[in-house]
Simulated assay, not measured.
Amino acid sequence: MIREDDPQFRITPIQQMASACTGALITSLFMTPLDVVKIRLQAQQKATLSNKCYLYCNGLMEHLCPCGESPWMPKRTRFEGTFDAFYKIAKFEGVPALWSGLCPTLVLAVPCTVIYFVCYEQLRYNMKKNYNERTKTTHQPMWIPMLAGATARTTAVTIVSPLELIRTKMQSKKLTFAEISGALQQEVKAKGLGGLFRGLGSTLLRDVPFSGMYWTMFETIKRSFNKTEAEKNSFLFNFFCGSVAGSIAAFITLPFDVVKTHQQIELGEKEIYTDGHARQKATSIQDTVKSIYNNHGVKGLFTGVVPRIFKVAPACAIMIATFEYGKQFFQIYNTQQYKEKMQRHQEIMLMSPTSSDYSF
């Protein structure tokens, strides 16, 4: 039987990276057409508004766009609904248009996802191993995936935060690499290295609680079902657990997402409409929460619960199911390699004389 904690069969960090990279690619391919349609409908709805931004997400990362300037919204086309948007985009612009923006998404999403999943796997495995050695048990307590998920997300988001700032500047207007480099140098000169991590706090505000909650739910749901190891490692079962865990985590952490969205839009508007030279102080998290509550009450903190769950659940399900399937594939591969190695070793031992032939 294949055991995850057996060092002979455990997948390597390189194999974990390959699994995470595959998951990111597949998630992007499946989710991007759905979000391109959503972007077009949002842009159409908000095109009459001036000096406003909106966010869209393809399941792995978010993009910020100024309304009325979106390159994804031809003026000649008006959509009457979701299916009409699918039809008209494919008819007038070609089917590949449904995957608009896929390349820049992968440039940032793939490394972020790889760092996140590999970091989580390494942390969870080592924490579980140390806990089991210390307590002489074999089970995994709930706090391990929660702590590993939160730590992994913090690490991944922090590492790619400067790239997020570059992406925001590139979305604001067409810039050459020399102009981007100059803008970043001015940012560092004016605000120090901390200037490269603007908006990091509001991103961590949502992503860290979500990741901790998601992995805890995922591991708990998998363990609660009385299934064999092979059944628990199947693609469909992991898809189910991932969608349920993603839905629960998305609902519980929705207030964090609402606050994060408000702050990211505020930051984006300053970047886009003041050419990145805004000096006004950003609104604090406490002030953002207070503003939302005063204007909309508790209900305002749960705005968009249905579309968020519909967006997050399939993205989480596809990503985790693909990742777990990749892990299972490499575990089987490692097992086969180990068996072949042992078989070759036995053949060599049989062909050569041993010390036992000369023993008394």
Rank of each mutant, 00 (worst) to 15 (best):
D275N: 13
D275L: 06
G276D: 03
H277P: 00
H277Q: 15
A278G: 08
R279C: 02
R279T: 15
R279G: 02
Q280M: 09
Q280G: 11
Q280F: 05
K281R: 14
A282L: 15
A282Y: 13
T283C: 08
T283W: 07
I285K: 04
I285S: 05
Q286W: 10
Q286Y: 10
Q286S: 12
D287I: 05
T288D: 05
T288I: 06
T288L: 04
V289M: 11
K290E: 12
K290I: 02
S291L: 09
I292F: 04
Y293P: 01
Y293L: 12
Y293T: 12
N294P: 00
N294Y: 09
N294C: 08
N294V: 09
N295T: 14
N295R: 15
N295S: 15
H296L: 10
H296W: 11
G297K: 06
G297A: 08
V298F: 12
K299D: 03
G300Y: 03
F302I: 01
F302T: 01
T303D: 12
G304R: 05
G304C: 06
V305W: 13
V305Y: 11
V306H: 00
V306C: 05
R308E: 06
R308F: 10
I309E: 10
F310C: 14
K311M: 14
K311F: 07
K311V: 04
K311A: 14
V312R: 10
V312N: 11
V312W: 05
A313P: 08
A313E: 05
P314R: 06
P314K: 05
A315M: 05
C316F: 10
C316M: 11
I318Y: 01
M319V: 01
A321F: 00
A321W: 00
A321S: 10
F323M: 02
F323D: 03
E324A: 04
Y325C: 07
Y325V: 00
G326N: 07
G326A: 07
K327G: 01
Q328R: 12
F329Q: 07
F329G: 01
F330C: 03
F330H: 04
Q331H: 10
I332Q: 11
I332N: 09
Y333C: 03
N334G: 03
N334C: 02
T335N: 12
T335K: 14
T335Y: 13
Q337S: 09
Q337V: 04
Q337Y: 01
Q337T: 07
K339S: 11
E340M: 12
M342G: 04
Q343K: 15
Q343H: 13
Q343D: 14
R344A: 13
R344W: 02
